[in-house]
């Protein structure tokens, strides 16, 4: 588990470093996410070519998968500290209540519908099998 956490932190560090060096408009953790995905794919690809039985060795460990699942399971909680910051914006929000409320609802709903509808229509292959895992109370 310590190695798995180190992997995540190292890739976040790498992503944030790249973002600062190259003045990229994307946040460091998001860059880190893409880099880690690429590294995982590269490693799995090489392992399958070499027919090695160490396919899941190194940083691509079961522990990393377990840690990722645990972190993603409580992803919602991690937004609470920033979300409470809404209280500092209450006067501004209240001053423009109607346009803000309608625009937030309308625009979010439209964005959801258009994205999902285009995706739904444009994917011609079989839909990914639906599996709503019962995660024992961790369903948000």
């Amino acid at each position: 588990m310590p190695e798995a956490f180190l992997t995540l932190l190292l890739f976040q560090l790498l992503g944030s470093g790249l973002q600062m060096l190259l003045h990229l408009p994307i946040p460091g953790p998001v860059i880190g996410m893409f880099l880690l995905a690429a590294a995982l794919l590269w490693r799995r690809n090489r392992a399958s070519v070499n027919q090695a039985d160490t396919a899941r060795a190194g940083f691509d460990s079961p522990a990393l998968g377990a840690l990722a699942r645990a972190l993603i399971a409580c992803l919602g909680l991690l937004f609470v500290p920033a979300g409470v910051g809404l209280v500092t914006q209450m006067p501004l929000l209240m001053a423009n209540l109607l346009p803000i409320a309608v625009a937030l609802f309308g625009s979010t709903l439209l964005g959801l519908l258009v994205t999902a509808f285009v995706m739904h229509r444009a994917t011609h292959d079989r839909p990914a099998p639906e599996k709503i895992a019962d995660t024992g109370g961790q369903v948000l």
Binding site: L8, G32, L75
Partner: peptide, 8 residues
Amino acid sequence: PATVALAI
């Protein structure tokens, strides 16, 4: 780290 974990 949770954002990076979405890579898995």
